[in-house]
Nucleic acid binder design. Structure first.
Lengths: 231, 231
DNA sequence: GGTTTGATTGATTGGTTTATCAAACCATGG
DNA sequence: CCATGGTTTGATAAACCAATCAATCAAACC
């Protein structure tokens, strides 16, 4: 069927672009992976670059259902801060199952074709915007638990940076360790923010690095420290 | 002269790889940019991939003199924490003068040729290691101003992640704003760490988000907030 | 002055790439 | 049963790519 072929091409192209990059992926490889002849591809897409744009559009379309919503769904609590670390856990799993080869498909393409491919660049920008906006909303939903003056948009951008930068390092090192270190450090920063908020409010506190306001805490205890079940 | 030609080739290749990526850069373009004929290139480098490795080696060789040492040199104070933000300022300038096209030449290549080019990957990994080790040393030099139990290696990795991730976002957005937001947020985290340290020591403090221990403060005051002169 | 060594040239090769196109195919509706 | 239009085929064009190589040149060395 028509849409089936088109989807197979898109899926194959998305996978190969993510694995080897845009330029390193030949049309022949996409055809082979999709089980299609060249004419079919050029029936649906006017050029390789056009295919790239379609792949990016697909990533954008799938961002919410397959990444953001899933991060929420995987959180055992309704703590919006847990959604954030759930999200980081999704990328970690992607690295894990691919032997540190696949991280964020958009991040890779952003650096390779970012400029000099205007349509793709615009989609990448929107992708990041949606991502950041969702994380910002989660941070906003954490409401008074985070400090008053905190720029939650900037924090969301920083979280995205940590993800992308952590993935770069993990790929280079062929190890999850750098990614985990970045995330762990991010978690510490959050604990500090939460602690600071409690400090501002002069609430009673036992430990400074303690758990988030435990209204619904259902995470597991690990080594005496509360885990937000990011993975 | 011999070395002159070789250097011109390396320089041209490094620039073009950073601008357009490895695969998108043709040998012909390198020859044109270096003002050299193909035979010369293949006299010095056995293949395009060999040239890539040489370019990476060059980046590694220049990391200390042109990036890390310069970050120290540009700091007006001897505060090792200022070195860190000085370093972030170097990358910002690179983005600025190139219209957000050039960030970290190694980060781009890390994602594009990271795997499936073992020699290049190993050099990228070493590059990041040296980078992280230097930042870690700076953090260590900050000594007791940072909290006792802080994993300074992890913080250094996180800083690298913020740089690389901030650059990705800046390139995608064709704007410095995302990079600045990430760095600003990083700065806030540091202020929080310093504040926390002072809190631990039960030292007298006036503001929680105040300046770093002002033994040698020579930065400029901006809007009432202390600036570490990152740029 | 003659020889060796290394550097440089630039036309050329062989392979690969993206993209085209006319012909065949097939489902749907008249 | 045919007509139509979207779909698929696969050979092939045209451009591009990395890489080669015999020939020239320059300098250093004996």
């Amino acid at each position: 069927m028509a849409t089936d072929t088109k989807d197979r091409i898109l899926e194959a192209a998305a996978r190969l672009f993510a694995e080897h990059g845009y330029h390193a992926t030949g049309v022949a490889g996409i055809l082979r992976a999709a089980g299609v002849k060249s004419g079919s591809l050029y029936h649906f897409f006017s050029s390789k670059e056009d295919l790239l744009v379609a792949v990016m559009q697909r990533h954008l379309d799938l961002l919410r259902p397959q990444i953001l919503d899933r991060a929420e769904a995987e959180s055992v609590t309704e703590d919006p801060l847990e959604h954030v670390f759930s999200l980081l856990g999704i990328y970690r799993r992607s690295l894990l199952v691919s032997g540190c080869r696949l991280g964020c498909p958009v991040g890779s393409l952003a650096l390779e074709v970012g400029n000099n491919t205007p349509r793709a660049r615009a989609l990448i920008e929107r992708y990041f915007s949606v991502w950041v906006a969702q994380v910002r909303d989660w941070l906003n939903a954490a409401g008074p638990r985070l400090p008053e003056g905190l720029d939650r948009g900037a924090v969301a951008r920083q979280i995205l940076a940590v993800v992308e930068g952590g993935i770069i390092q993990a790929r280079a090192a062929e190890s999850l360790e750098p990614y985990d270190a970045c995330v762990a450090q991010l978690r510490s920063s959050f604990e500090l923010l939460l602690a600071r908020r409690r400090y501002e409010q002069e609430e009673p506190r036992d430990t400074l690095m303690g758990e988030p306001s435990p209204t619904k805490r259902t995470g597991r205890e690990v080594g005496g420290q509360f885990e937000w079940r990011a993975w």
